[in-house]
């Protein structure tokens, strides 16, 4: 490799890496990204779908993302959102119930609810204030 080839490789890589700046910031890609993930204005109020484990006494337990289908929180959220779009939340609920049934750590969970919850993030995290929840699907955990 001579200097010209090395310069071409260098320039090509740097230009490619910088190229997302020419796209809309929300037009993300991999591995060429505009890295806009923390750039957007967002309110502290958030609505999202998530599963809840309900104990026999009515207590609530949050379920780990891998039980939904991915160890990554955001990917797990997309799985639930897509199931909602496809109207397959009851099937996802049954899948989640099947996954937790053999797990000791969720032995006290008797049923699963998939809900749409709307919470203020600061109130929820700092003041333990729960927002509104609407049930989208419910199923029993069979053991």
């Amino acid at each position: 490799m001579n200097r010209v080839a090395a310069a071409v490789v260098s320039i090509a890589m740097l230009v490619a890496t910088a190229s997302p700046v020419l796209r809309k910031p929300w037009d993300d890609g991999f591995p060429l990204s505009p890295y806009a993930m923390f750039a957007f204005r967002r309110p502290t109020k958030l609505s999202m779908e998530y599963p809840l484990g309900i104990t026999a006494s009515g207590g609530r337990r949050y379920l780990a993302p891998w039980i939904v289908g991915s160890g990554e929180v955001l990917q797990a959220l997309r799985v639930i959102a897509r199931a909602k779009e496809a109207r397959t939340l009851p099937a996802l609920c049954a899948t989640i119930a099947g996954r937790i049934a053999p797990l000791d750590e969720y032995r006290d969970v008797a049923s699963i609810r998939i809900v749409t919850g709307t919470h203020d993030a600061v109130d929820f995290l700092v003041r333990d204030q729960l927002g509104m929840e609407q049930e989208r699907a419910r199923c029993e955990v069979r053991r």
């Binding site: 502290t44 600061v122 995290l125």
Partner: peptide, 16 residues
């Protein structure tokens, strides 16, 4: 602040 709050809320609701 809002990004951090919302990101942590998502984690809390997904058992993370």
């Amino acid at each position: 602040r809002n990004q951090i709050a919302v990101d942590n809320l998502r984690k809390a609701l997904l058992g993370d």
